[in-house]
Amino acid sequence: MIPRRKRMVVIGLLVVGMGLATALILQAFNQNLMYFYSTSDTVAGKAPSGRDFRIGGLVVKGSLQREPGGLSVRFTLTDLHQAVDVRYTGILPDLFREGQGIVANGQLGRDGVFIAREVLAKHDENYMPPEVAAALALTKANAQPSRETR
């Protein structure tokens, strides 16, 4: 009788432990999910405030400005429809160039400027982040009907 009760206690503890671990994992998972928003989504207010998200688009040519004497930069991202200003302090990746598609992680400031914690440009000169490619394709698709009606 006693061994059986002991076994039940052990099994019960295991079940509770597994449940706790699962809950912890799923909570951590949920907290670390980062959603991607295009610049149009961001301007339209679909992106969350006070929470990290990813933004992507093309770096507008001629928009890159450096703060003299420091490492802060400011540039404009666009999906060819709406544009968002991005501010970043630090070293930009090797393949960051104007006209190139990039993705940035960070938060949207009150003034509508995106404060990037990290800027990502991938390891290939012909590369377009798929998120950016999709956002551009969407812009193009939305633009098509209006052109036809004109």
Partner: peptide
């Protein structure tokens, strides 16, 4: 259903 990514803190913690 949307484009998301899972950050390193999740992996580190788990």
């Amino acid at each position: 259903l949307g484009k998301i990514s899972v950050g390193p803190p999740y992996f580190n913690l788990v």
